[in-house]
């Protein structure tokens, strides 16, 4: 490794023959630490509960060497799906937020601010109240709702074949407000049982997650990360302006559409699995940028941070000395709201 004189501080070039890769040791270190912390929090989350287990017992049950049928059932059947859902949904939200913040050139451009989460919620509520649907259909409804909202916002904010940054955010906020009202309206039309189910879903929850919840979002993250990763460099060039990026040889609008499709799919899958979760998509990319000093769109690091944040929020919520189950979506909503206010008061320009 040779420190390159003209690369920003902390970045190094790794060369083998004609191959050269620019890496930031700090980014790599922090990403690895986050992955380890996420895994450790996952194991910890599987240890606590009515049946308390040791770390070793959890690990043994996960890798199927415990020989204890009860441990296996509790860990693999109940707690592991919940942990996988939390980690994957958090990761999906982290990447989704990173993409939207890059595309909109604004730290506020996260899927929960620009309406996709609300749209996903509309999809889910329609399934619950109008079609009295089951969990899987509710998840699909959420993905479809998010996608539909994304298409509407994209079409409205597109002008002359180009999607602008501020326009995207402002139109997203407008669409979000309308959908929020629609959600409220839907809630007063249903019968009491469905309304209860719907508002429970609307609070966002990781309770009673099964593999049906965990698998789609986990697979989504694993498939989409390798697709998004090569676009990160182009995304960072687009942040400088469409014209300069295009004259550098970036297919701007195509890159942007691909990135937004991936981001919407990830946000939809996360919402389908865990309900509307605020804050994670907004904060995870910002936190890694502050920690690592990496000025490009973060992907793996944002995913790791998102996973950590959500599993941490879930574990803390479960440990709260409150008898009623506190929905995680409400907790992240409160934390996220405070974070948003803090960010707005600090922003030089919004």
């Amino acid at each position: 490794m040779t420190p390159a004189r003209l690369l920003p501080e902390g970045r190094q070039v790794w060369r083998v023959g004609r191959t050269s890769l620019v890496i930031s040791p700090r980014l790599v270190t922090i990403t690895v630490v986050l992955l380890v912390v996420g895994a450790a929090l996952g194991v910890a989350a599987m240890a606590i509960g009515t049946l308390r287990l040791s770390f070793a017992e959890v690990v043994a049950a996960v890798v199927d060497t415990s020989g204890n049928a009860q441990h296996d059932r509790v860990v693999r059947g109940l707690r592991l799906p919940r942990v996988i859902t939390a980690l994957s949904a958090g990761a999906a939200l982290g990447i989704s937020g990173a993409i939207f913040q890059s595309v909109s050139r604004n730290a506020l451009g996260s899927p929960d601010v620009i309406g996709f989460t609300t749209g996903a919620a509309t999809g889910a509520i329609v399934q619950i109240i109008v079609f009295q649907a089951e969990a899987l259909q509710v998840s699909l409804g959420a993905v479809a709702g998010g996608l539909l909202t994304a298409i509407v916002v994209y079409m409205l904010s597109r002008r002359g074949g180009v999607t602008g940054g501020y326009r995207l955010i402002l139109i997203g906020i407008g669409v979000s407000a309308v959908l929020g009202a629609v959600n409220g309206l839907l809630l007063v039309t249903g019968d009491l049982n469905q309304v209860y189910t719907a508002s429970l879903w609307l609070s966002g929850s990781l309770d009673a997650r099964t593999w049906t919840h965990a698998l789609p979002v986990a697979v989504g993250v694993l498939v989409l990360v390798p697709l998004v990763l090569p676009l990160a460099r182009r995304a960072s060039l687009i942040e400088m302006g469409d014209d300069i990026a295009q004259q550098l040889g970036v297919r701007v609008e195509r890159t942007r559409v691909l990135l937004m499709l991936a981001a919407v799919a990830l946000a939809g899958l996360a919402t389908g699995a865990a309900g509307p979760i605020a804050f994670v998509a907004l904060a995870a990319p910002q936190l890694v940028v502050r920690l690592t000093g990496w000025r490009r769109m973060p992907v793996v690091s944002a995913a790791a941070m998102g996973g950590c944040l959500l599993i941490l929020a879930d574990t803390v919520t479960r440990l709260l000395p409150i008898t009623a189950a506190v929905p995680i979506g409400r907790i992240t909503g409160i934390v996220g709201g405070l974070y948003l206010i803090w960010m707005l008061t600090r922003a030089k320009q919004v």
Partner: peptide, 17 residues
Amino acid sequence: DLVGRGRFPHQRMLQQW
């Protein structure tokens, strides 16, 4: 960093610098 971005058209996925 900004000026280095002008090199994008000369770079490839595995030839970054």
